[in-house]
Simulated scan of single mutants.
Amino acid sequence: MSLDTRTTSTTIVLAPGRKGGGSFLDTKWGERLIAVFVPIALLGVWEVLSRTGLLDDRFFPPPTGIVSRVRLHARFR
């Protein structure tokens, strides 16, 4: 009795932008979604961590606090 150890594999390569096989995130719209969502998510995490005291707000004030200060200073110029 002999054991066959040969394996076969098939690789299918699709050109960029072609339909089929790829994930939504590999498309142009998926990349745009990531480009918008990741910074918003990071700002949200920063806001929560700063508000809960897990980040020292002397060094990392919440983003909403930064925006309100900028608006306050811009109003008096």
Rank of each mutant, 00 (worst) to 15 (best):
A15R: 09
V45A: 03
P63A: 03
R58L: 07
F24Y: 12
I40G: 02
R18W: 08
D26Q: 04
R69I: 01
F37W: 14
V38T: 10
A35T: 07
H73V: 12
L14F: 03
A41N: 07
D56M: 05
G22A: 09
D4M: 00
F59C: 15
K28Q: 13
G21V: 01
R71Y: 06
L14P: 04
T8Q: 08
R71D: 06
K28D: 15
R32H: 06
F59Q: 11
L55A: 13
V45P: 00
F24P: 00
S9E: 12
A41C: 08
L54Q: 01
R77E: 09
D4P: 11
L3I: 14
V36C: 00
I12L: 11
F76K: 00
L33P: 01
L25I: 09
K19Q: 08
K28I: 14
V67F: 09
I34P: 02
F24N: 12
G30A: 03
L3R: 08
G44E: 08
D4W: 05
S68A: 11
A74G: 15
W46D: 10
V45F: 01
R6A: 15
F60R: 04
G22E: 08
P61F: 00
P61C: 05
L42Y: 01
G53C: 06
D26P: 03
V36Q: 02
P39Y: 00
T7R: 12
P39N: 08
I40L: 15
G20Q: 03
G22W: 01
T52Y: 04
M1R: 04
E47M: 10
W29Y: 04
I40H: 07
V45W: 03
A15S: 07
D56W: 10
R6I: 09
P61W: 06
R32G: 15
P16V: 01
G53W: 03
V67A: 14
V67W: 05
L14Y: 11
F37T: 15
K19I: 03
V45H: 00
V38Y: 06
R77P: 12
I40A: 14
T27G: 04
L42P: 15
V70P: 09
W46F: 12
V36P: 05
P63M: 01
R71C: 07
